[in-house]
Design a protein around this nucleic acid. Sequence first.
DNA 1: CCTTGGCACTCCGTGCTCCAGAGTGCCAAG
DNA 2: CTTGGCACTCTGGAGCACGGAGTGCCAAGG
Lengths: 337, 337
Amino acid sequence: MLDERKLAVLRAIVRDYVSTMEPVGSKSLVDRHHLDVSPATIRNDMAVLEEQGYITQPHTSAGRIPTDKGYRLFVDRLAGIKPLSGAERRAIETFLARAYDLDDVVLRTVRLLAQLTRQVAVVQYPSLTKSAVRHVELVPLADKRLLLVLITDTGRVEQRSVELPETIAEASVNELRNLLNACLDGQRLTEVAEVIGQLAERMTTADRPNAAAVFSVILETLLDRNEERIVVGGAANLAPADFSQGLREVLESLEEQVVLMHLLGESVDESAVTVRIGAENPVVGLRGTSVVTTDYGTGDRALARLGVLGPTRMDYPTAMGAVVAVARYVGKILAGA
Amino acid sequence: MLDERKLAVLRAIVRDYVSTMEPVGSKSLVDRHHLDVSPATIRNDMAVLEEQGYITQPHTSAGRIPTDKGYRLFVDRLAGIKPLSGAERRAIETFLARAYDLDDVVLRTVRLLAQLTRQVAVVQYPSLTKSAVRHVELVPLADKRLLLVLITDTGRVEQRSVELPETIAEASVNELRNLLNACLDGQRLTEVAEVIGQLAERMTTADRPNAAAVFSVILETLLDRNEERIVVGGAANLAPADFSQGLREVLESLEEQVVLMHLLGESVDESAVTVRIGAENPVVGLRGTSVVTTDYGTGDRALARLGVLGPTRMDYPTAMGAVVAVARYVGKILAGA
DNA sequence: CCTTGGCACTCCGTGCTCCAGAGTGCCAAG
DNA sequence: CTTGGCACTCTGGAGCACGGAGTGCCAAGG
């Protein structure tokens, strides 16, 4: 359907357009890439590519630019993932290694990605539901109020305040704390709900109302903010020129957690990295942008996702390379921390 | 030096320019504000105002626009703080009351401010150094590693991991935890350094190296990230048109914590609200923007600052009103939480 | 002394034409 | 299937005229 040369032409068009940001014509194509044919031949090929929907012209007698479909083909079959240079890899490693807590890891990651790709970076905090409990802490704040602190094995710390129905004694707090730690330590958060259900029935009657309040807050914490925390960086990399409807819409989208959630979405298949191009994007108002995402995690477990967002006209091979590399190093850091 | 009418003219120019975003001429001035004089008179006044540096013309024979100096006079003497409507006040209160932890309070505050003012909102987390310790928690993560969790009376939770020089026993951890809580509970964080200094000397020799490691991390936590956490929202409200050098520079600045710190700065005097206009701004690259900030805190103590940032051509009275109102309610919420 | 109407002047922004350049599609020949 | 030739189309910038908005100045009037 598309012979070797036509594919080469498409590849060349994508590369040129990505780097120059201008529609590319048949003449400049044969010049810049040593295709051993004449411009006229290329024009024929381009006519076919256009007919099939891979490229388009902004107006008659202008050069061609790739369509979403064209980028898709490019990503799937015409270009691989461009590995980072050794220097870049070392830079990533040392930069991330310097982080001193989870917040800092995430912050550094988002900066790193933004800087490497010159795009907007998006990093999700390690998901609560996929982590395991490492410690539960109860701190009395007032007679009828506790602070609940939940520490996971990924270093994440969740805090909530708990309103109690009755005054609680110091001793009861300690008892409850010990009980919780004994039963929950090491449990996956998905299993916690079940364990807590059993616990509730074994409580002495005196403490039951208070314990119930604590339990329900724990469950809430797990349900509610599950995957919520997502950090964005490098918004300054958004070039106004790239977004016809103005980048206001894009900036707005980037401030909504729900939108970001959708953006990161789920990994589509088992492949290393997911690319969503233009209108493939689940978020309206973010057509016109492409998103490159991947999982990261400690060894076997996928904890969360990260990626970059930019104009459809982005350097996919490089972006993919940066995303997978950063994901791998973040995983390492988290595993070792 | 400037009579009543000239001030009125300046005030009118600022208001018109802020609302229309276009240079304002003598004719439209007398029309829109029922000044009972002729355009020619206004022109004379404007000539004086221009000579004194309060207004300027983008080019010969265009209308006038205020200079930074003009806005300054406007803010200082010509306009007050515009109080919010009752509906807005109620909206603030209910919206903030729904927050369930410190992160959420800050998040909601930043959204609120951005929405109320249609500008970029900036909110600083309650400063560590001005808070008091409520609880210290040590969680063993590995043989030679602890997680340190520091909870303050403003609800802030700081966590750090501590590398120990030697293996530590469960009992030692408990002992250390109890010691820390006994000595630090209720202390202002500024006093903690001193207390810890004394503690270090009283340790039994066996635990001393480990304790020292913990102590140094506590001190680091207080010094290092002191005022660091600052949240930005409403970046989408930045209109590209407002920033001649492109808003890329502005967006970049907004991602740097150091810059944000400088932006919020210190309250200049005892007045409720600080306004920095254009070049008064301490941050290069953010000339061309104005910043309206104020303290917030629980009752007597000022904990941190918040504010909004926008083009010099912003609606100062409304912005000031929103900033002080939000600051007051946030203070209330924190005091009650 | 301040205010006012009149008037000439300046400059911006718009709309217009014109032109060069880049790129195309098509065709006929190799 | 490839190629050179050719006529065609469209954009973008330069040049130009023009209306409009706004100014500064001046001389007259309160």
